[in-house]
């Protein structure tokens, strides 16, 4: 799928995260800010990239403000942001979990 517009999902509240996604040529850039970046930064980014890969997103700028969200929350927020940023949602929900 292709990111065609900027989109936002999530909140800044504790145990959640805010995901902002924007169109970008030439690859994927993930910018992560987290209150637990030292403990879990690598793990969070891996979850984000894996979620995007399952959605076949290869180009885009993803900025994440994390407040200690669990992996399942991260996946849900990223999926929602992508859903709002594409024209046509072609992913199978059952294949995403």
């Amino acid at each position: 799928m292709k990111i065609v517009r900027e989109a936002l999902a999530g909140t800044l509240e504790s145990s959640d995260l805010m995901v902002r996604i924007a169109p970008r040529e030439e690859g994927l850039e993930v910018v992560l800010q987290s209150e637990v970046i030292h403990q879990f930064g690598t793990q969070i980014e891996a979850v984000v990239r894996e979620t995007l890969a399952k959605l076949a997103i290869v180009d885009g700028l993803v900025v994440i403000e994390d407040k200690g969200a669990l992996d399942c929350v991260i996946r849900a927020r990223v999926q929602t942001a992508v859903q709002r940023a594409v024209d046509e949602w072609t992913a199978e929900w059952s294949a995403l979990s």
């Binding site: 936002l8 909140t11 800044l12 509240e13 504790s14 805010m18 407040k67």
Partner: peptide, 13 residues
């Protein structure tokens, strides 16, 4: 009461 984070969330949206 951490209202600030909720408020900023709303205004960003």
């Amino acid at each position: 009461e951490a209202l600030g984070l909720r408020l900023l969330t709303e205004v960003v949206h």
